[in-house]
Every structure is written in structure tokens, then in C-alpha cells.
Design a protein around this nucleic acid. Structure first.
Lengths: 338, 338
DNA sequence: TTTTTCATCGAAAACGTTTTCGAAAAGCAG
DNA sequence: CTGCTTTTCGAAAACGTTTTCGATGAAAAA
């Protein structure tokens, strides 16, 4: 059975292509009875309009792109879930692109997105990205972009983030209250927006709290596994190793657990750990992991809704919302008293 | 700066649209010097060909669809990673669709895929799916489909799976060897291909092993969280509760851990647990979780490569490969002696 | 009756590519 | 200089929609 198109329907019904097209989109120009005839045959022949022809003619693709550093990651995969739910509700399709934390990949992806393949872009920067030229160029073509989590500071671009500064502050405070005298801050890269804010929260907590402040100890580990393990092992092997670790992303906490196993360090006895994390098994770890948990699903939902508002009424160009959702600190065993 | 298209390039260069088009795709018909002129201007004006026009004309979209039950799932997100890597290498785009374990959603998605939006489909069935009509119809339109993990038995459809029967057998055997006299088998649904094979392995292991066989105890929990917790709680509250649990998917093991916490049951003392799982923190759980781990990334990679072979040489219709990768059983604390 | 309006449809021009086919020019052999 | 091939390009027809605009006939208003 070859594909059925408008022409075929038209011939079969003794109508013009134009009439069939209008009937299918329920135009007022077409008589009710004709519409029904058209719909019936369309159903019978299982007609599916060619999305590429339609997209070309209407110059919109009903498609959005999601550009993220990685997918095998609890945070991003849940965000994507939220995005998909909204997109599906709007009848939009979702193309996902992974940068794998590579700036070069990000450039290439963004460059490609100039083609008009998508009507909008949802994006979280890769850890290497320190320059926003490519994103500014994309934005200048009129492409609606919404950033989430790892955002780019670009004028008139909506963002969805969490209260990273406050969370960083509270996490550090939490460690201090649990008697950590020295606290290390772990991150992948110093470039990302989230790192800057979380680290600033960490620094300010160390400064402002009257209890004898641990010294500022920030470690940027890079994003590949070997380097992370090495950096943490080095940190924890020093004779004056920190008493607490604040991991700015989940994989650093996981690595810390593994290193502690290797070095026979007890959590929370020898080392207390808290981490940004969306691990669903945080409470089942040994010991259970204290986390700052971001509302990942809502981030995806809100970012996607923001994007659709941008897509639908481009006129409202003055709109530049910055949505900040709240993360929640959940204290568990890894920061508990011995 | 308005978008640049072939017409604009042609006018600027005093060439025809045809020539510019052919120059950009490096046709032999075009003089080297002309090609260079065209490429230079295209670069300068940042020309990006309109993918929809191109797709319509060439009748191929350079796009594949991935249809999976959920994305916030360690297994599927890693599979997707593998898929993306291959797709990107081939210059293809990836549309993802989530069925959220709903048959209705699956039907709608598959129906839409008849439109020609994609050149091929990678798919894992939702747990409700017991009937393959919609998939057969899609296949009959000539759409290349490759199933992975939860496959549909449809003639001439390549599949990528793991050795589910053997793994089910080995997992059960492992529990028996660790002195479980009664073993419950947990699954989401009895419809899926993986469930049938894993459960059959379980049943045969119970039958074939001479040591006093535990009785066959299969529980199908459904796929929503409340139901799962309830079913497991009911199972473990019975006075003759099983001594071992074989969870056919990760979320059932997680739920089991939570229920055990609630009921004050000790793992592995009161209950031993093994599960199919791609949890990266399995070794860090309390207790560490014995797993059958599937090579998720490779499944994605292989499935995608199979799909591209289907897409590229449709002629080879006789090809109907069934790739079976090996899972690995990793014994950890949850099945250990007390 | 004549003129206007209204309801219903169709012809045709887009949308931006790719590809076929023929034309022109240039080179070469005779 | 003639006939032939080769090189290089352009005209035009697709691909399947959507949309504008005009045509037609019938009903309503004059």
C-alpha cells in the first residue's frame, strides 16, 4: 500500500487538493458534509500529512531541541521527562542533542540549529563553555532559547534555575553545624553558572558564620572519571584532609564514596559528605547521602512552558523571565554525628 | 540578518540556484573554482540548508525515532546515550518519544510515525502492550524498525536483547545456592518479552536444581509506584514470606529495599535480593545490591547500527538479525551470607 | 427583475531544495 | 573550418503542503 497524500484523497473524492486540505483542518470555508466525507476517507486510508511539506510551507516545525551535556544522569533525564510531557501536550516533537561536556560539540550543535530544524531550543551548557558567542549568534537569528540549570547570561533569554547560592550556603552551613572544621568544595568546572553560585554560597557561608571558619578549599575536578577519582583521592590522602565535602554535582559524591571505600575512610565518622543530587536511592546508600535535591521534573516543565510562551507570541520580546525554583536540603546519614 | 537561502547565494554570485546547490554538495559537474566561490560565500553568510525542503525533496529525513517507556530510568537513559552516539556519527537526528508505559500512548506514537517524519524507529515496548497490530502496520509501510530489550515478535524485525533466560536462570540459581528455600519473582507485567524469558529462567531453575526447590512464586506488580509498594509489602508481610526476591527490573528492587526498611526486615539476613539493574550506585547501597547488569550502552549502539544497516540497504530484506548480548551477574551484599 | 451577499469550492503560487536534461562554450581531431 | 566530445552551467520540474484569491451558483435584498 503506497502512501496516501492529498492528491490521492482529492482524486478519490472528486475534490480539489485545496478543498481536501481545508477540510482536514476544519476550515469554515468547507461544508460540513464535505468535511465528513474527507475525514472518513482520510481515516480509511490512514492518511498522515507529510510533516516536512507542512513544515516547509508553514515555516514552523512543531519541533524543539533539547541540548544537554549528558543523558545518563539522574538530573538531566528527569528534566527531559518534564520537557517531554509538556511538549507532547503541545503536540511538539523533541530532538535531543548531547554535548558530552564538550565545547566543540556544543558549537557544532548550535551551529546546526540555525537551519530552522526547530522552533525553539532548551539548553543547559556544557562544563567547558566559557564563551557565549555561538549562543548569541543563534539568538540573533530570532530563535527562542530558554536556558536551565547551567545557564548563559545573555540578554533577553529566559532561564530556569534553582536557588543555587542559597543552597550552597545552606549545604556548607549544614556541614559547619555538624562540626566540620574544614570543608572542601568539589566541582566539575569553574566555568558554569551553577558552580559560580554554589561556590559563592559556600565561600560566604565560610566567611559569615562566626564559628571558627574552615578555610576556602575549592577543587575543580574536570569532567572525566579518571581525573575525578584522582583529584579526590589526592585531596583525601593529605594529612590535613578536610572533615567535610560539599559536592556540587552527584557524580562527585559517588566518586567520594568510592574513594572513601578505597582509603578506608568512614562516612560520616572520618568525613562528612553532602551533595547536589537527584539520586533516587540516596536514602538507601551506605551511609544514606545527605542531598540538596533539585526539582528536576519541574525545571523541565517550567523551562518548556517558558519556551512555548516565547514561541507562541514572539512579539512579547520584552519578556525575559528568570524563574528560580527551590531545592530542598535533605539531611541524612552522610552528615550525621558518628 | 534574514535567513540566507540558495536563491540569495545564487543572486549574489551571479549563478543559478542549481549550480549553487550542486557546488555545495561537491558535484563533479561544477568547476573547482566555482565551488570555492560558492563555499566561501556560504560560509560568510553562514548558510544552513533548510532541512525540511531537503527532506521533502529527497524523501528522507536524516532522523530516527526512539520510542521507550520512560527516560528517568538508568537502563533506558544509557541505551539512549549509545543510540545518540551512533546517530550523531551518522549525521542523524534523534526524536525521542515516551510512552510512559501506556499502551494508548504507544498506539498514538506509532500511528504518528507513519507520517514519514523519521527514516527508522528504535523501540522498546511498554509494559501494557500485548498486541502488535500497530507495529505490524507500521512495518508494512516499509518503515525500518529495530526492537531492543522489550521486543515484539514480528517477522523480519531485527532485535537486540540480552540473555534474559540464562540470566533469569542464573539469578535464581544464585539465590538457591545462597540457601533461599522460597524465592519470589517480581515483575511489572507479564506481557513483556523480557518478563517471559526471565520468568521462564526462574521457573526452570527452580525445577531443575535438585536441592529442594522453592515453589514458583511470581508477582506482577503493575507499573505505578503505589501498586508496587503495596504488592511487595503484602508479599513480605505474609507469615511464610519468601527468603529470596528476584526483581526483574530495578525499580522493584528499590521498592523492596524501602519496604524492608519499613517492615524492619534485614537484607540479606531476613531476605536476600537480586535484581536486574543498571544502577551505578549498586555497590554503594546498604547493603550493596547483587545485580544482573545489562550492557545498556552497547544495546543502544548495536540496535542503532542494526537500524542504519536496514535504512541504508533496504534491499536486504531477508536480513533479520537477532543480536543477543550477555548480561553479567555481580554478587554483592544483598545475597551474601548474613 | 436586478443587484448583493453568502456559501462553497478550485487554480495556482508559494515554501527551499534536488535532480534531470538540455544548452552553450570550449577543446580537439580531422 | 567542420564535426565531435568534454566541461560547465541553467531552466524547470518535481517533493506535498498551505493559503490567497477568484470563480461559481444560489440565496437574499433591492
Amino acid at each position: 500500500m503506497e502512501k496516501t497524500d492529498l492528491k490521492k484523497l482529492a482524486k478519490e473524492l472528486n475534490l480539489s487538493i485545496a478543498t481536501v486540505s481545508k477540510a482536514l483542518r476544519d476550515s469554515w470555508e468547507i461544508k460540513a458534509e464535505t468535511k465528513q466525507r474527507v475525514r472518513d476517507l482520510a481515516d480509511k486510508l490512514n492518511y498522515q500529512p507529510n510533516p516536512y511539506a507542512s513544515s516547509m510551507r508553514k515555516r514552523k516545525s512543531q519541533t524543539i531541541a533539547v541540548v544537554i551535556p549528558e543523558i545518563a544522569n539522574n538530573f538531566f533525564s528527569v528534566v527531559l521527562d518534564g520537557i517531554q510531557v509538556i511538549a507532547e501536550k503541545k503536540g511538539f516533537h523533541v530532538l535531543t542533542y548531547l554535548t558530552h561536556e564538550s565545547y566543540t560539540n556544543e558549537i557544532a550543535t548550535i551551529r546546526h540549529l540555525q537551519s530552522g530544524r526547530v522552533d525553539g531550543v532548551l539548553m543547559s551548557l556544557c562544563s567547558e563553555t566559557a564563551d557565549y558567542q555561538h549562543l548569541v549568534r543563534l539568538k540573533e537569528t530570532g530563535m527562542p532559547i530558554v536556558f536551565f540549570d547551567r545557564i548563559a547570561e545573555i540578554p533577553d533569554c529566559p532561564t530556569v534555575t534553582t536557588d543555587d547560592y542559597e543552597s550552597g550556603y545552606r549545604a556548607t552551613e549544614h556541614l559547619l553545624q555538624n562540626h566540620c572544621k574544614t570543608i572542601a568544595y568539589l566541582s566539575l568546572s569553574q566555568h558554569t553558572s551553577i558552580n559560580r553560585k554554589r561556590q559563592q554560597g559556600y565561600i560566604d557561608a565560610l566567611k559569615n558564620i562566626p564559628a571558627k571558619p574552615g578555610k576556602n578549599l575549592a577543587v575543580h575536578c574536570g569532567d572525566e572519571n579518571g581525573g575525578i577519582m584522582l583529584a579526590i583521592k589526592k585531596l583525601l590522602s593529605k594529612k590535613n584532609r578536610p572533615e567535610g565535602i560539599f559536592a556540587s554535582v552527584e557524580k562527585l559524591a559517588i566518586a567520594t564514596y568510592h574513594v572513601c571505600n578505597e582509603l578506608k575512610l568512614k562516612i560520616p565518622g572520618d568525613l562528612k559528605v553532602i551533595s547536589f543530587s537527584n539520586l533516587r536511592t540516596a536514602s538507601l546508600l551506605n551511609p544514606s547521602l545527605s542531598t540538596i535535591t533539585q526539582p528536576a521534573f519541574d525545571i523541565g516543565r517550567e523551562a518548556c512552558e517558558l519556551l512555548f510562551r516565547k514561541i507562541e507570541k514572539k512579539s512579547n520580546n520584552y519578556m525575559s523571565e528568570h524563574l528560580v525554583l527551590k531545592s530542598s536540603l535533605i539531611a541524612r546519614g552522610s552528615t550525621g554525628r558518628i
